[in-house]
Amino acid sequence: MNRETFKRAFTDSLPVMAGYIVLGTGFGILLSAKGYSFWWALLMSVTIYAGSMQYVGVDLLAGGASAVSTALMTLAVNARHVFYGISMIGKYRDMGWRKWYAAFGLTDETYSLVCGEPDLPDGVKPSDYYLLLTLMNQCYWIVGSLAGAILGNAVSFNSAGIDFSMTALFVTIFVEQWEKNRQHFPALFGLLVSLACLVIFGADRFMVPAMAIIGIGLLLFRTIGRRQSKNG
C-alpha cells in the first residue's frame, strides 16, 4: 500500500466525508434522543453500515418492532444493494480477501465513487485503492454517528437542507458518466423509469419495481441490439 494510493483514495473520498459526517451525526442525534447510549450508534455503524436503513432502524428499535417486520423492512430498503454488487463483480474480482470488505462497504455513496472509470495512475494499485476508499468512507460514517450520539442536541446549528449534499454528489457523478459515455440510453432509461415509478408507486414503494424494470429493460435492449446487428 503506497502513499500515492492513499492520497488518491483520500482526495476522492472528500465529497463523501462532508456528507457522511453530517448524515452520521444526524443518525447519532436521533438514536441518542431515543435513549440509546453511543455504544449502540457505534455498534450499528460498524455492523449495519447503511445510511437510510440506520435511520429507519432508530424507529424500529425505539418502537420495539418484531423480528419479521425488521427483516422485511431491511429487504425492502436495501434491495438496491444487489445491483451495486452486480456492477462491481468485474472490478472487485482480483481483490482477494479485500473483496469481502469492499462488498460489505458498498453503500450508495461508496458505490457512486467506484462504479465509474476512476482512471487511476500507474502508481495506484486498484485493489488497495478500492479497499482504502471503502474504509475511509466507513470511518467518516462512524465518526459522524459517534459525534451525534455523544454531543446529542448540545450543538445548535441550523442544518436544515444539509442532506442535499448526497443529492448533489449523485448529480455530479451523473454528469461525469454522461460525458464519458457516448451511449446515453442506460442513463436516460434509468432516469425515465425511476421518475415514472415514483409517480405510479409513490416515494415509499418505487425502488423495487424501478429496479426490476431497469434490469429487464437493459437486458431486452441488448437482445434487440444483437438481433439488429445480426440482421443488418
Binding site: M166, F170, F174, P186, L191, M207
Partner: peptide, 13 residues
Amino acid sequence: LPYSVIALLVVYC
C-alpha cells in the same frame, strides 16, 4: 447498470 442506477439514486434522493 451504473449509468441507470446513478439516475435512480438521484430520483431516490
